[in-house]
Amino acid sequence: MNWTWFHKWGSPKWFYEMSGRWLPWLGVAAILLLAVGLAWGLAFAPPEKYQLDSYRIIYIHVPAAFLAQSCYLLMAIAGVVSLVWKMKLADVALQQAAPIGAWLCFVSLVSGAIWGKPTWGTYWIWDARLTSMLILLFLYFGVIALGNAISNRDSAAKACAVLALVGAVNIPIIKYSVEFWNTLHQPATFTVTGKASMSADMWLPLLISVLGFYCFFATVLLMRMRLEVLRRESRASWVKAEVARLSGGNR
């Protein structure tokens, strides 16, 4: 197998140039997919049988929850790459993904709580999914806090990589234990919207919206990573040339 594609990722300059080319496409895709998915979900999809129109929150709640979990997985993978191959770009990806993941976690928690009010009659219940999501948010806070506390950039990234990996090993255990705890304390009387009963004109917009969230995540991640690459490589001549070009254009 040809591994040159992998080695290219070790070059910040290559990444900066390539990501600059991808960014507009990803951004446009994110806006289009989100606009179509959310508008379809809000205005064109039929109402759910029992929850009527309040179920339309699903089109933001589920994608955000999806992304929040995928983001932690991405961080764990970046952590492995960073620790095994010492690739700096993986460090950058890991640390820049953490705040976005935390925000998406926050979105899924808030939208879930708001959805809970008309459905369950209360904003917060200690339901297994909500609780796992809350714990995931705490895990994100841990990674962000550790990254901020260590002043040396390289050790901060490596420490975050170790923590993300430990967290990733723990997440399945946490998830199962929380589910176990939940069945222990309250018999599952309410299951969140049976997905099997969703018709195509309900789940298609959901799929589009999930894709839109993925594109959005990729866009923001690339934006943050590009800035961080510039910061880290500020001594390199190509960064100086880039800064001169960009700030010259602004004036």
Binding site: I57, I60, H61, V107, V110, S111, I114
Partner: peptide
């Protein structure tokens, strides 16, 4: 509920 959730998001 719906609009506040969408607005915050």
């Amino acid at each position: 509920y719906v609009w506040s959730a969408y607005g915050i998001t």
